[in-house]
């Protein structure tokens, strides 16, 4: 009973944190973009505009729900769910910190579950989020949405390949698919044992591929405002649109967490091997927060690619590089 309660509380805390972080991320996106363009950004709702996501949420709820004529209503409704749920599910396997002891109660590790196939689970479920985009694009009965959906499907499959190859390198180095084992292998108190230093090329490819995987700038061809109005969610309104939004931001946060775990030693603290759990959690949040900021930073810096350039980059540059990286990693491991 006690174990069940602990797991329930951990799940609530982590999902609450995820949704809160996603809400905060929408605000951060607008704030940082404003600052980079010498503006203030939202600053009317609450102190520093902190309650802006709340106001947005209320606005979304009260907007009219539209379903376009000739659209397939069931798939039209299914798509936003398929977009948001996989992105939220994947956070279940991310290890946020080590052993947590709260009020003298040992609560176990700070993660919903330490699946021994955590990486695989993350990739498998994360790969499903493409359906929300494709089906949403198809079911809208709109040419812009359809084109956005088609692009998204081609793009996400292409980049998922390189992404998985890179994850394989890390898995081969650690010898485990468990994200906590991957973290622990880097948690030696010495930051040089983080995978980013042994796999710099993989790190760069991985970070860029996550941008394509989450449909973010400079690879946001699924939306691509100048060409496709708003891409796959052109016809969506109200909470259905908000769900797409939530899915995108949750996917970004999960990808930031994954990058942290795979390459920056997860919750490990530099020069302090057995840090208490809240320091570890802080360390994790700082690193993941940097990558979340990177998503925003890049979006407001770089122009969008052309679609053929994207495919060129994915198939002719990243995939061979990732494969070569895997080959070299394998060779080094087998020789050592």
């Amino acid at each position: 009973m006690n174990d069940f309660l602990i797991i329930l509380i951990k799940t609530c805390v982590i999902y609450g944190g995820l949704i809160g972080a996603a809400a905060l991320m929408t605000l951060a996106e607008r704030k940082f973009s404003a600052w980079m363009q010498l503006r203030y950004g939202p600053n009317r709702v609450g102190p520093w505009g902190l309650l802006q996501p709340l106001a947005d949420g209320v606005k979304f709820i009260f907007k009219e729900e539209l379903c376009p004529d000739g659209a397939n209503p069931w798939i039209f409704r299914l798509a936003p769910i398929l977009s948001a749920v996989p992105a939220m599910l994947t956070v279940a396997v991310i290890p946020f910190a080590g052993d947590v002891t709260l009020f003298g109660v040992d609560c176990g590790n700070l993660s919903i579950t330490d699946l021994d196939i955590g990486t695989l689970f993350l990739v498998a479920i994360g790969g499903l989020s493409v359906y929300g985009v494709i089906l949403g694009g198809w079911a809208s009965n709109s040419k812009y949405s359809l084109l956005g959906g088609l692009r998204a499907s081609a793009q996400m499959i292409s980049y998922e390949l390189s992404l998985i190859m890179i994850i394989l390198c890390i898995v081969a180095m650690t010898g485990s698919l468990d994200l906590r084992a991957i973290t622990e292998s880097q948690n030696t108190g010495n930051p040089l044992s983080w995978n980013v230093f042994s796999q710099p090329l993989a790190f760069v490819i991985f970070v860029i591929a996550t941008f394509a995987e989450t449909n973010r700038h400079p690879f946001d061809f699924a939306e691509c405002e100048p060409e496709l109005v708003a891409g796959f969610h052109t016809e969506y309104s109200s909470m259905k649109f908000a769900l797409f939004f939530l899915g995108e931001y949750c996917a970004m946060i999960v990808m930031a967490c994954l990058t942290t775990t795979l390459f920056l030693g997860g919750y490990s603290v530099p020069f302090w091997e057995d840090a208490p759990w809240f320091i570890e959690l802080g360390s994790f949040c700082a690193k993941a927060g940097f990558f979340a900021f990177l998503f925003i930073w890049v979006r407001w810096t770089l122009p969008r690619f052309r679609f053929d350039q994207l495919m060129h980059l994915g198939w002719k540059v990243f995939l061979p590089l990732a494969l070569a990286n895997l080959l070299v990693t394998g060779a080094v491991i087998s020789l050592a």
């Binding site: 498998a124 790969g127 493409v130 359906y131 494709i134 089906l135 359809l146 499907s153 499959i157 998922e160």
Partner: peptide, 13 residues
Amino acid sequence: GGAIMVLFLFVVM
């Protein structure tokens, strides 16, 4: 789920 069905969907669309 993640790879083959996406291709199916792609082709169908």
